[in-house]
């Protein structure tokens, strides 16, 4: 970066009133009928430092280039339909665990936050180069877990703050 680059526009919070502008049409499907893979539902719940639901967050996902965007409800939840993502191999041939990219916005967030959703039971979790950068005791915050009954949605807790807060990335 040289001194003649332009100053990037500063981020400002999405505020509490974005719904009619950004989520009037929900993008809750990251797949179409032709997508390969096991169909799953994924419920994301956003909570704050008091463990209270964040009822005015916007969650955006990207999986294999497909876009998802939902507002959280009165319980801090939003649910997406997708397929179980497939593992990828990086340019360096390292095994990458299957994951979904997450970008979260909310009142009280002056900037959006990036995180990732991995899936419990994925044999590649131990080799994933991104998880390796995360302190071991915090890795579980990035892993979704299956519902207790058959066909129940996968669940992911997105904790903005607190002792067990989700890992966010500086990118």
């Amino acid at each position: 970066m040289s001194e003649d680059t332009l100053v990037a526009t500063a981020s400002q919070t999405v505020g509490p009133f974005f719904h009619f502008g950004l989520t009037a049409t929900p993008y809750d499907r990251l797949v179409d009928h032709f997508s390969a893979g096991t169909p799953i539902r994924l419920t994301i719940r956003v909570t704050d430092g008091d463990d209270l639901p964040v009822t005015d967050a916007m969650v955006e996902l990207s999986q294999a280039g497909m876009f998802g965007r939902m507002a959280t409800d009165a319980d801090g939840r939003c649910e997406f339909e997708t397929v179980h993502p497939s593992p990828a191999t990086g340019h360096d041939a390292a095994r990458r665990a299957a994951h979904i990219l997450v970008c979260v916005f909310a009142r009280g967030l002056l900037r959006h936050l990036f995180t990732r959703i991995y899936f419990r039971g994925d044999p590649a979790l131990d080799d994933d180069p991104v998880l390796q950068l995360v302190p071991e005791e915090r890795r579980h915050t990035l892993v979704a877990f299956p519902g207790e009954i058959l066909d129940a949605p996968w669940r992911f807790n997105l904790r903005l703050q607190g002792p067990d807060e989700t890992v966010f990335f500086n990118v």
């Binding site: 993008y27 430092g49 909310a106 009280g108 950068l133 903005l160 500086n170």
Partner: peptide, 28 residues
Amino acid sequence: STLRRAPSKPLIRLPAALSDLREPVHGW
């Protein structure tokens, strides 16, 4: 509103080669 919503732990630096955030996103 930032007081109970801002992460308290430092964000983890991801090298560009690992971040995946440069892949095109479409579908609106």
